[in-house]
Amino acid sequence: MSVHPRVVHKRRATITALPLYYSGHVLKKHTKEKDFKNYYAELRGATLFLYKDDTQDTYVEKLDLEQLKSMELESPYQRKTPTIFTLTLHTEEVQEVQEVQLKMDNADTGEEWRAYILTVVKRQIPSKLQLLPGQMFLLQDVLVQERTRNPPSSQPPLPPRPSFLKPSGSAGASSPPKATSAHGIPACFFDVTRQEAERMLEANPEYGGIILRPSTLPNNYALTLRQLTPSGPVMKNYRVASTSGGFIIELEAAVMVPSLNDVLTYFIEKTEYRVHPYVPFQPYDTRIDVLPAPECVATTSPTAKIIPKAQVAPMVQSQNKEEPLPDPAKPVGGEYVLPDEDGPDEHDLKMVQLAGDLQEVLKLRRENICKEKGNPPGMAQWATNGAPL
Protein backbone atom coordinates (compact mmCIF):
# COMPACT_ATOMS: atom_id res chain seq x y z
CA MET A 1 0.00 0.00 0.00
CA SER A 2 1.44 3.29 -1.07
CA VAL A 3 1.84 6.11 1.42
CA HIS A 4 0.13 9.40 0.73
CA PRO A 5 2.61 12.10 -0.36
CA ARG A 6 1.40 14.40 2.44
CA VAL A 7 2.35 11.80 5.03
CA VAL A 8 5.74 11.33 3.41
CA HIS A 9 6.28 15.06 3.42
CA LYS A 10 5.55 15.27 7.17
CA ARG A 11 7.96 12.43 7.87
CA ARG A 12 10.70 14.10 5.91
CA ALA A 13 10.07 17.36 7.76
CA THR A 14 10.73 15.57 11.06
CA ILE A 15 14.18 14.46 9.81
CA THR A 16 15.33 17.97 8.93
CA ALA A 17 13.98 21.40 9.78
CA LEU A 18 15.22 22.91 6.51
CA PRO A 19 12.49 24.58 4.43
CA LEU A 20 11.44 22.90 1.22
CA TYR A 21 11.99 25.15 -1.80
CA TYR A 22 11.68 22.87 -4.83
CA SER A 23 11.31 19.16 -5.66
CA GLY A 24 10.95 16.82 -8.62
CA HIS A 25 12.34 13.81 -10.42
CA VAL A 26 15.93 14.05 -11.66
CA LEU A 27 18.57 11.77 -13.14
CA LYS A 28 21.90 11.72 -11.34
CA LYS A 29 25.30 10.14 -11.82
CA HIS A 30 28.90 10.79 -10.85
CA THR A 31 31.34 11.58 -13.62
CA LYS A 32 33.01 8.21 -13.12
CA GLU A 33 29.73 6.33 -13.58
CA LYS A 34 28.36 5.37 -16.99
CA ASP A 35 24.58 5.54 -16.59
CA PHE A 36 22.19 7.97 -14.94
CA LYS A 37 19.97 6.80 -12.09
CA ASN A 38 16.50 8.07 -11.36
CA TYR A 39 15.94 9.89 -8.06
CA TYR A 40 13.36 12.06 -6.41
CA ALA A 41 15.11 15.25 -5.29
CA GLU A 42 14.17 17.87 -2.73
CA LEU A 43 15.94 21.20 -2.38
CA ARG A 44 15.76 22.05 1.31
CA GLY A 45 17.72 25.11 2.26
CA ALA A 46 21.09 24.81 0.54
CA THR A 47 21.05 20.98 0.61
CA LEU A 48 19.81 18.66 -2.13
CA PHE A 49 18.29 15.43 -0.71
CA LEU A 50 17.97 12.44 -3.02
CA TYR A 51 15.39 9.66 -2.50
CA LYS A 52 14.84 6.47 -4.45
CA ASP A 53 11.28 7.63 -5.18
CA ASP A 54 8.68 10.01 -3.84
CA THR A 55 7.34 7.43 -1.38
CA GLN A 56 10.53 7.09 0.64
CA ASP A 57 10.88 9.19 3.79
CA THR A 58 14.63 8.54 4.24
CA TYR A 59 17.11 9.98 1.77
CA VAL A 60 19.84 7.83 0.24
CA GLU A 61 22.23 10.69 -0.54
CA LYS A 62 22.52 14.41 0.02
CA LEU A 63 24.59 17.10 -1.68
CA ASP A 64 25.74 20.10 0.34
CA LEU A 65 25.40 22.94 -2.13
CA GLU A 66 27.32 25.29 0.20
CA GLN A 67 30.41 23.54 -1.17
CA LEU A 68 29.38 24.26 -4.76
CA LYS A 69 32.26 25.73 -6.75
CA SER A 70 30.72 25.76 -10.22
CA MET A 71 27.57 24.75 -12.09
CA GLU A 72 28.07 24.25 -15.81
CA LEU A 73 25.43 23.67 -18.44
CA GLU A 74 26.55 21.26 -21.17
CA SER A 75 24.26 22.67 -23.85
CA PRO A 76 22.36 25.94 -24.21
CA TYR A 77 18.71 26.14 -23.30
CA GLN A 78 16.55 24.28 -25.84
CA ARG A 79 13.01 23.15 -25.21
CA LYS A 80 13.25 19.88 -27.12
CA THR A 81 16.54 18.65 -25.67
CA PRO A 82 17.26 17.42 -22.11
CA THR A 83 19.23 19.59 -19.72
CA ILE A 84 22.44 18.31 -18.11
CA PHE A 85 24.24 20.17 -15.31
CA THR A 86 27.70 19.41 -13.95
CA LEU A 87 28.03 20.37 -10.29
CA THR A 88 31.56 20.70 -8.90
CA LEU A 89 31.64 20.31 -5.12
CA HIS A 90 34.71 20.70 -2.94
CA THR A 91 34.58 18.88 0.38
CA GLU A 92 36.76 20.64 2.95
CA GLU A 93 36.83 17.73 5.41
CA VAL A 94 38.46 15.20 3.08
CA GLN A 95 40.00 17.73 0.67
CA GLU A 96 38.25 16.10 -2.27
CA VAL A 97 36.66 17.49 -5.42
CA GLN A 98 33.42 15.80 -6.39
CA GLU A 99 31.66 16.17 -9.73
CA VAL A 100 28.00 15.23 -10.05
CA GLN A 101 25.82 15.43 -13.14
CA LEU A 102 22.08 16.12 -12.99
CA LYS A 103 19.86 15.48 -15.98
CA MET A 104 16.31 16.70 -16.62
CA ASP A 105 14.38 15.45 -19.62
CA ASN A 106 12.33 18.65 -19.75
CA ALA A 107 14.30 21.81 -20.52
CA ASP A 108 11.80 24.00 -18.65
CA THR A 109 12.21 21.86 -15.52
CA GLY A 110 15.96 22.05 -15.90
CA GLU A 111 15.78 25.84 -16.07
CA GLU A 112 13.79 25.90 -12.84
CA TRP A 113 16.31 23.65 -11.08
CA ARG A 114 19.15 25.89 -12.22
CA ALA A 115 17.34 29.00 -10.98
CA TYR A 116 16.56 27.56 -7.53
CA ILE A 117 20.03 26.07 -6.96
CA LEU A 118 21.90 29.25 -7.91
CA THR A 119 19.50 31.41 -5.89
CA VAL A 120 19.99 29.52 -2.62
CA VAL A 121 23.77 29.21 -3.14
CA LYS A 122 24.55 32.79 -4.19
CA ARG A 123 21.56 34.34 -2.34
CA GLN A 124 20.60 36.30 -5.41
CA ILE A 125 18.47 35.57 -8.44
CA PRO A 126 20.59 34.82 -11.52
CA SER A 127 20.12 36.97 -14.58
CA LYS A 128 18.69 35.93 -17.97
CA LEU A 129 16.29 33.24 -16.75
CA GLN A 130 13.76 31.64 -19.07
CA LEU A 131 10.93 31.70 -16.51
CA LEU A 132 7.35 32.95 -16.42
CA PRO A 133 6.33 35.87 -14.16
CA GLY A 134 4.62 33.52 -11.70
CA GLN A 135 7.75 31.39 -11.44
CA MET A 136 9.84 34.49 -10.84
CA PHE A 137 7.49 35.51 -8.03
CA LEU A 138 7.93 32.12 -6.31
CA LEU A 139 11.68 32.38 -6.77
CA GLN A 140 11.70 35.81 -5.13
CA ASP A 141 9.83 34.35 -2.16
CA VAL A 142 12.47 31.60 -1.84
CA LEU A 143 15.23 34.22 -1.87
CA VAL A 144 13.60 36.12 1.00
CA GLN A 145 13.21 32.91 3.06
CA GLU A 146 16.81 31.86 2.50
CA ARG A 147 18.19 35.28 3.42
CA THR A 148 16.08 35.25 6.57
CA ARG A 149 17.17 31.73 7.49
CA ASN A 150 20.86 32.23 6.73
CA PRO A 151 21.64 35.96 6.45
CA PRO A 152 24.96 36.91 4.86
CA SER A 153 26.02 38.76 8.04
CA SER A 154 25.74 35.62 10.21
CA GLN A 155 29.43 34.93 9.59
CA PRO A 156 32.13 37.44 10.54
CA PRO A 157 33.34 39.53 7.62
CA LEU A 158 36.43 38.34 5.86
CA PRO A 159 39.55 40.39 6.51
CA PRO A 160 41.11 42.27 3.59
CA ARG A 161 43.52 40.43 1.36
CA PRO A 162 47.00 40.62 2.96
CA SER A 163 49.51 42.82 1.18
CA PHE A 164 52.20 40.15 1.14
CA LEU A 165 50.12 37.92 -1.16
CA LYS A 166 51.66 39.06 -4.39
CA PRO A 167 51.28 37.25 -7.72
CA SER A 168 54.00 34.84 -8.64
CA GLY A 169 56.98 36.19 -10.51
CA SER A 170 57.44 35.89 -14.24
CA ALA A 171 60.51 33.69 -13.94
CA GLY A 172 60.74 30.80 -16.35
CA ALA A 173 59.52 27.37 -15.32
CA SER A 174 62.91 25.85 -16.10
CA SER A 175 64.62 27.63 -13.21
CA PRO A 176 63.67 26.07 -9.84
CA PRO A 177 62.66 28.42 -7.02
CA LYS A 178 65.43 29.37 -4.64
CA ALA A 179 64.16 28.99 -1.09
CA THR A 180 67.35 30.43 0.36
CA SER A 181 67.08 33.77 -1.43
CA ALA A 182 66.01 36.92 0.34
CA HIS A 183 62.61 36.82 -1.35
CA GLY A 184 62.10 33.05 -1.04
CA ILE A 185 61.84 32.67 2.73
CA PRO A 186 58.57 34.12 4.13
CA ALA A 187 58.55 36.15 7.33
CA CYS A 188 56.64 33.41 9.18
CA PHE A 189 59.49 30.89 8.77
CA PHE A 190 61.06 29.88 12.09
CA ASP A 191 63.72 27.28 12.84
CA VAL A 192 61.63 25.46 15.46
CA THR A 193 60.25 21.99 16.05
CA ARG A 194 56.63 20.94 15.82
CA GLN A 195 56.11 21.25 19.58
CA GLU A 196 57.74 24.68 19.69
CA ALA A 197 55.63 25.92 16.76
CA GLU A 198 52.42 24.74 18.43
CA ARG A 199 53.40 26.46 21.67
CA MET A 200 54.11 29.69 19.79
CA LEU A 201 50.73 29.62 18.08
CA GLU A 202 48.94 28.78 21.31
CA ALA A 203 50.69 31.48 23.35
CA ASN A 204 50.24 34.32 20.82
CA PRO A 205 47.17 33.69 18.66
CA GLU A 206 46.98 37.39 17.80
CA TYR A 207 50.26 37.11 15.85
CA GLY A 208 48.78 34.66 13.35
CA GLY A 209 47.98 31.01 12.81
CA ILE A 210 50.55 29.72 10.29
CA ILE A 211 54.19 28.88 10.98
CA LEU A 212 56.50 27.54 8.30
CA ARG A 213 59.36 25.48 9.72
CA PRO A 214 61.98 22.95 8.62
CA SER A 215 60.92 19.33 8.40
CA THR A 216 62.67 16.37 9.97
CA LEU A 217 63.39 15.15 6.44
CA PRO A 218 66.27 16.85 4.61
CA ASN A 219 65.42 19.51 2.01
CA ASN A 220 61.78 19.58 3.13
CA TYR A 221 59.53 21.93 5.04
CA ALA A 222 56.56 21.63 7.35
CA LEU A 223 53.64 23.92 8.04
CA THR A 224 51.89 24.19 11.41
CA LEU A 225 48.35 25.57 11.28
CA ARG A 226 46.14 26.70 14.16
CA GLN A 227 42.52 27.03 13.12
CA LEU A 228 39.47 28.01 15.15
CA THR A 229 36.47 25.64 15.03
CA PRO A 230 33.11 25.69 16.85
CA SER A 231 34.55 23.16 19.31
CA GLY A 232 37.75 25.13 19.88
CA PRO A 233 41.19 25.68 18.30
CA VAL A 234 42.71 22.79 16.34
CA MET A 235 46.40 22.27 15.52
CA LYS A 236 47.33 20.67 12.20
CA ASN A 237 50.70 19.96 10.59
CA TYR A 238 51.36 19.54 6.88
CA ARG A 239 54.45 18.48 4.98
CA VAL A 240 55.80 20.51 2.06
CA ALA A 241 58.30 18.68 -0.14
CA SER A 242 60.91 20.62 -2.08
CA THR A 243 61.59 19.46 -5.64
CA SER A 244 63.49 20.80 -8.61
CA GLY A 245 60.26 22.09 -10.11
CA GLY A 246 58.72 23.71 -7.05
CA PHE A 247 57.09 22.70 -3.76
CA ILE A 248 54.53 19.94 -3.27
CA ILE A 249 51.90 20.24 -0.53
CA GLU A 250 51.33 16.63 0.51
CA LEU A 251 47.55 16.41 0.77
CA GLU A 252 45.23 13.59 -0.35
CA ALA A 253 45.25 15.36 -3.69
CA ALA A 254 48.79 16.71 -3.88
CA VAL A 255 49.17 20.38 -4.86
CA MET A 256 52.30 21.77 -6.51
CA VAL A 257 53.21 25.45 -6.30
CA PRO A 258 56.30 27.32 -7.51
CA SER A 259 57.41 29.02 -4.26
CA LEU A 260 57.02 29.01 -0.48
CA ASN A 261 54.98 32.21 -0.66
CA ASP A 262 52.55 30.37 -2.90
CA VAL A 263 52.34 27.65 -0.26
CA LEU A 264 51.12 30.26 2.21
CA THR A 265 48.75 31.70 -0.39
CA TYR A 266 47.20 28.27 -0.91
CA PHE A 267 46.50 27.73 2.80
CA ILE A 268 45.21 31.28 3.31
CA GLU A 269 42.78 31.00 0.40
CA LYS A 270 41.57 27.57 1.51
CA THR A 271 40.82 28.93 4.98
CA GLU A 272 38.95 31.87 3.39
CA TYR A 273 41.53 34.36 4.70
CA ARG A 274 40.56 33.64 8.31
CA VAL A 275 44.09 32.48 9.13
CA HIS A 276 47.18 34.55 8.39
CA PRO A 277 50.92 33.90 8.84
CA TYR A 278 52.52 34.20 12.26
CA VAL A 279 54.39 37.51 12.37
CA PRO A 280 55.23 38.98 15.80
CA PHE A 281 54.11 42.55 16.29
CA GLN A 282 56.74 45.23 16.80
CA PRO A 283 56.23 47.12 20.09
CA TYR A 284 55.23 50.76 19.97
CA ASP A 285 55.63 53.45 22.64
CA THR A 286 52.49 54.88 24.18
CA ARG A 287 53.93 57.81 26.18
CA ILE A 288 55.89 60.93 25.31
CA ASP A 289 58.31 61.93 28.09
CA VAL A 290 59.12 65.65 28.46
CA LEU A 291 62.83 65.93 29.25
CA PRO A 292 64.47 69.08 30.67
CA ALA A 293 66.01 71.31 28.07
CA PRO A 294 69.84 71.40 27.92
CA GLU A 295 71.55 74.39 29.49
CA CYS A 296 72.90 75.63 26.21
CA VAL A 297 69.45 75.71 24.63
CA ALA A 298 67.16 78.66 25.34
CA THR A 299 63.61 77.70 26.25
CA THR A 300 62.16 81.13 25.38
CA SER A 301 60.92 82.13 22.00
CA PRO A 302 63.73 82.93 19.58
CA THR A 303 64.55 86.59 18.97
CA ALA A 304 65.34 88.18 15.70
CA LYS A 305 68.82 87.43 14.51
CA ILE A 306 71.13 90.44 14.60
CA ILE A 307 73.76 90.61 11.92
CA PRO A 308 76.99 92.09 13.40
CA LYS A 309 78.52 95.05 11.65
CA ALA A 310 81.92 94.79 10.15
CA GLN A 311 84.58 96.20 12.46
CA VAL A 312 87.04 98.55 10.68
CA ALA A 313 90.17 99.85 12.37
CA PRO A 314 89.95 103.61 13.10
CA MET A 315 91.98 105.93 10.94
CA VAL A 316 95.03 107.33 12.76
CA GLN A 317 95.44 111.03 12.17
CA SER A 318 98.93 112.14 11.40
CA GLN A 319 100.55 114.43 14.00
CA ASN A 320 102.41 116.40 11.32
CA LYS A 321 99.54 118.35 9.95
CA GLU A 322 100.08 119.98 6.63
CA GLU A 323 100.02 123.77 6.92
CA PRO A 324 97.31 125.44 4.88
CA LEU A 325 98.34 127.42 1.86
CA PRO A 326 98.54 131.17 2.39
CA ASP A 327 95.61 133.19 1.20
CA PRO A 328 96.25 134.89 -2.11
CA ALA A 329 97.00 138.60 -2.03
CA LYS A 330 93.89 140.64 -2.16
CA PRO A 331 93.68 142.79 -5.27
CA VAL A 332 94.07 146.49 -4.99
CA GLY A 333 90.87 148.46 -5.10
CA GLY A 334 89.90 149.57 -8.59
CA GLU A 335 91.73 146.71 -10.27
CA TYR A 336 89.93 143.85 -11.78
CA VAL A 337 90.88 140.25 -11.17
CA LEU A 338 89.40 137.45 -13.19
CA PRO A 339 87.97 134.75 -10.90
CA ASP A 340 89.48 131.30 -11.18
CA GLU A 341 86.73 128.73 -11.55
CA ASP A 342 88.97 125.81 -10.66
CA GLY A 343 90.40 127.60 -7.60
CA PRO A 344 93.74 129.45 -7.28
CA ASP A 345 96.97 127.59 -7.82
CA GLU A 346 100.61 128.60 -7.29
CA HIS A 347 101.00 130.12 -10.73
CA ASP A 348 97.91 132.27 -10.37
CA LEU A 349 99.07 133.50 -6.99
CA LYS A 350 102.38 134.58 -8.43
CA MET A 351 100.64 136.43 -11.24
CA VAL A 352 98.37 138.24 -8.78
CA GLN A 353 101.37 139.27 -6.66
CA LEU A 354 103.23 140.47 -9.77
CA ALA A 355 100.20 142.53 -10.86
CA GLY A 356 100.10 144.15 -7.43
CA ASP A 357 103.76 145.10 -7.64
CA LEU A 358 103.18 146.52 -11.10
CA GLN A 359 100.35 148.68 -9.87
CA GLU A 360 102.53 150.09 -7.09
CA VAL A 361 105.19 151.00 -9.65
CA LEU A 362 102.66 152.68 -11.92
CA LYS A 363 101.24 154.65 -8.97
CA LEU A 364 104.62 156.02 -8.04
CA ARG A 365 105.30 156.95 -11.65
CA ARG A 366 102.03 158.89 -11.97
CA GLU A 367 102.75 160.81 -8.83
CA ASN A 368 106.18 161.74 -10.11
CA ILE A 369 104.75 162.89 -13.46
CA CYS A 370 102.15 165.05 -11.76
CA LYS A 371 104.80 166.75 -9.64
CA GLU A 372 106.91 167.51 -12.64
CA LYS A 373 103.98 169.14 -14.53
CA GLY A 374 102.97 171.11 -11.51
CA ASN A 375 99.50 169.61 -11.16
CA PRO A 376 97.76 170.14 -7.88
CA PRO A 377 97.64 167.35 -5.36
CA GLY A 378 93.98 166.61 -6.19
CA MET A 379 94.93 165.83 -9.72
CA ALA A 380 97.60 163.50 -8.49
CA GLN A 381 95.07 161.88 -6.25
CA TRP A 382 92.60 161.67 -9.17
CA ALA A 383 95.27 160.16 -11.35
CA THR A 384 96.20 157.75 -8.62
CA ASN A 385 92.58 156.55 -8.31
CA GLY A 386 92.55 155.38 -11.85
CA ALA A 387 92.29 158.39 -14.18
CA PRO A 388 93.82 157.88 -17.53
CA LEU A 389 97.19 159.26 -18.16
Rank of each mutant, 00 (worst) to 15 (best):
S318A: 14
I84C: 10
V257D: 01
L158T: 12
Q155L: 15
S23H: 12
R44S: 03
R239W: 04
T216S: 09
E99F: 07
R226S: 02
K37T: 05
L291I: 13
E74S: 14
P233R: 10
I288N: 11
T119G: 01
N220M: 08
Y51E: 00
L325I: 06
T180W: 12
C296P: 01
M71A: 09
K350E: 07
V120S: 00
K178P: 04
R6W: 06
N237F: 04
V100Y: 03
I288V: 14
N106E: 07
M1Q: 02
R239H: 11
D35V: 05
L73M: 12
H25N: 08
E93Q: 14
E252K: 12
Y39D: 01
P230H: 11
S75D: 13
P177L: 04
S244D: 14
V144H: 12
E111W: 02
P331G: 13
Q98K: 14
P302S: 15
R123Q: 15
V316E: 12
R274P: 03
N368P: 01
E92T: 10
K10V: 09
E111F: 03
S301H: 15
Y284F: 13
G378C: 01
V8P: 00
E92R: 12
E206Q: 15
Y21S: 01
T265I: 03
L217H: 06
D348H: 11
P277M: 11
V240Y: 02
L223T: 00
S163A: 15
L65Y: 05
L50I: 01
R366Q: 06
M351Y: 11
E335H: 13
E335D: 10
L48S: 02
K32L: 11
P177R: 02
L364C: 03
T83N: 02
G134R: 13
L362K: 03
E269C: 09
K363E: 04
E112N: 03
D345K: 13
L165C: 09
L118I: 01
E346S: 14
D327M: 07
